[in-house]
Design a protein around this nucleic acid. Structure first.
Length: 572
RNA sequence: CGGGGCGUGGCGCAGCCUGGUAGCGCGCCUGCUUUGGGAGCAGGAAGUCGGAGGUUCGAAUCCUCUCGCCCCGACCA
């Protein structure tokens, strides 16, 4: 591609609207432009990068036995009512009416559509397993879109769905997808971790997220220093607590005037936070529920919501707390509480702890579960801390930041049952498909790659997903001999199979260097007047390694080098 | 949804408090000079000051409403 013919509006200054590095650089380098909040146009270079990612995704999905199709973006609300998600999905689902007044929505994901397609067209175990995927624009009306392509409302996603005859088959498919994903992100040249994850609104049983490691990530990954265990902070669990052997002591009420926070109460009573249990009131789908965790722990709302099977979970306001418990915030406790209580499993293993007394300015000492209160449910409802140990090996945890670029789920039969999607098995009985679903944020990968790979001058693209592999700069456009050589080299690079952006603009050298750095193509070749003496092509990687190539062999040598580098990345 | 900030040529901003000819830098166009890390000089084009209403002789500036964008939060007793 000739730069002179390309729509590539680079900016000298950072646009005021962008703060995060990938957002800034994508705008400055002329990859994207915003249309409205969370909705972007992809300019030629941005699209080229996306196409590179798509190609890798397609190759690996196809290699893993999946087949590509393309599903509609506009979907009937009816289908979503069938799965139950018309109510559950919330306002991220953009709904509207068509001219006939029929409820419709824009597809944020496609479980409903694919399940409908398969139930209408697949009837026999002989046609299974089936693994289908598409690469398509999704729309999710995010509460707060931000960071450019990182969290847009409209974005490009690869979503795949598998249908198996039974659990064993589904697990095998899941395993294949896990491996395909490892290959995809490796081939994209990204540093990533696969982590255990919560299943979220998609539902289902078991899932992994693929996280690109970057400081600007919105997710926290808990990774064990000893073994391979890694999980999303929302999901990560410490080891099962051991019950102490303390004898229960007599319950005792103590006055704690004005002492509301864990810190204040502990200071006042001269105890450590581990001896105190705090009681938090949540509103789960409109109903109040109390959650109990140790004083030095925090409630993990995702875990709590899962235990409660709640769609919407939020902290109660002070007014709601008083109304539902009869006690002011800061003095809540489980003893005599009328609303349901969910206790963290850690709390169940404790004895003789301190809680609020359920009335103003008082706490209770020597509270014991079972004796003084009985929770409606208990389980792991807290966030792990740096003090926790790996449940697998007992080593400590590292907390890393990551950007979620892929997510795979074992869905089981939740959708096939809700939508009554069945096939006839070998034994002549009708069975529900056992499903899985597999997503990759294609446009987000481009942003994540930039978050992970940039410097003060611009983007530093990983070779496999760079919009072009090589920038060829002609620094003397008006010099006939230099230009003839540059044109020849350009043709030869193309002939050698190299993706090259040829800067043939009539601009000064400085501008060309700055633009090349900003765009961040992995290799830069320079031909200027110096070439007339040296007959050599100056080459440089975006990371700063310099070398020269003899003019006649430049294309061939560079092609070999690029091929070797791609090979090395793929086999990491 | 709560809080904060911002809307002025393509981009980045000043002007607003204290109403009176719409400005600066970059970019863009023309010419000359220059030409290996965002050139110099000269000339030029381009703005309903986000929108609507109001106050006023007069509004980018003051008032009311409205739309859009960005950031933080929706986090703990």
């Amino acid at each position: 591609m000739r730069y002179s013919e390309l729509l590539l509006p680079t900016l000298k200054e950072d646009p005021a609207e962008a703060e995060v590095v990938s957002h800034r650089l994508l705008l400055r380098a002329g990859f994207i432009r915003k249309l409205t909040s969370g909705v972007y146009s992809y300019l030629p270079l941005g699209l080229a990068a996306i196409r590179k990612v798509e190609r890798i995704v397609r190759e690996e999905m196809n290699r893993a036995g999946a087949q590509e199709l393309l599903l509609p973006m506009v979907q009937p609300g009816e289908l979503w009512k069938e799965s139950g998600r018309w109510e559950k999905y919330g306002r991220e689902l953009l709904r509207f009416f068509d001219r006939h007044g029929r409820e419709s929505c824009l597809g944020p994901t496609h479980e409903e559509v694919i399940t409908d397609l398969v139930r209408m067209n697949v009837h026999s175990y002989r046609d299974l397993p089936l693994n289908l995927y598409q690469i398509q624009t999704k729309f999710r009306d995010e509460i707060r879109p931000r960071f450019g392509l990182m969290r847009g409302r409209e974005f490009i996603m690869k979503d795949g769905y598998s249908f198996d005859v039974d659990e064993a088959g589904a697990e095998e498919t899941y395993r294949k997808m896990f491996e395909a994903y490892q290959r995809i992100f490796t081939r994209c040249g990204l540093e990533f971790r696969a982590v255990e994850a919560d299943t979220g609104t998609i539902g289902g049983k078991f899932s992994h997220e693929f996280m690109v490691l970057a400081d600007t990530g919105e997710d926290v990954i808990v990774a064990c220093r000893g073994c391979g265990y890694a999980a999303n902070l929302e999901k990560a669990a410490g080891p099962e607590p051991e019950a102490g052997r303390e004898e229960p002591l007599a319950l005792e009420k103590v006055a704690t005037p004005g002492k509301k926070t864990v810190e204040e109460v502990c200071g006042f009573l001269g105890i450590r936070p581990e001896r105190l249990v705090k009681t938090m009131v949540y509103i789960a789908d409109g109903k109040p529920v109390a959650a109990m965790v140790r004083g030095d722990h925090e409630v993990q709302e995702v875990k709590l919501a899962n235990i409660l099977s709640a769609v919407e979970l939020r902290l109660a306001t002070d007014e709601e707390i008083s109304a539902h418990t009869g006690a002011p915030a800061g003095f809540l406790g489980p003893v005599g509480l009328s609303i349901p209580v969910v206790a963290d499993r850690e709390v169940m293993a404790m004895a003789n702890f301190v809680t609020g007394a359920g009335e103003a300015d008082a706490h209770l000492k020597n509270v014991n579960p079972g004796r003084d209160f009985s929770p409606a449910a208990s389980g792991d409802i807290r966030t792990v801390t740096a003090a926790d140990r790996c449940p697998e090996c007992g080593a400590g945890f590292d907390f890393l930041k990551g950007i979620e670029v892929g997510h795979i789920f074992k869905l089981g039969t939740s959708y096939s049952e809700a939508m009554n999607a069945r096939f006839l098995d070998r034994d002549g009985k009708e069975k529900h498909f056992v499903m899985g679903c597999y997503g990759i944020g294609v446009s987000r990968i481009v942003a994540a790659a930039i978050e992970q790979n940039h410097d003060g001058d611009g983007i530093v693209f990983p070779l496999p997903i760079a919009p072009f592999q090589v920038a060829l700069l002609n620094l003397a456009v008006k010099d006939g001999e230099v230009s003839r050589a540059a044109e020849k080299l350009y043709d030869e690079l193309i002939a050698a199979g190299i993706e090259v952006l040829y800067d043939d603009r009539d601009e000064r050298a400085g501008i060309k260097f700055k633009d090349a750095d900003l765009i961040g193509l992995p290799y830069r070749l320079v031909l200027g007047r110096k070439f007339l003496e040296t007959r050599e092509v100056e080459a440089r990687t975006r990371r700063g390694e310099e070398f020269t190539l003899p003019f006649e062999e430049a294309a061939q040598l560079l092609a070999a080098r690029i091929e070797a580098e791609l090979e090395a990345i793929s086999s990491r």
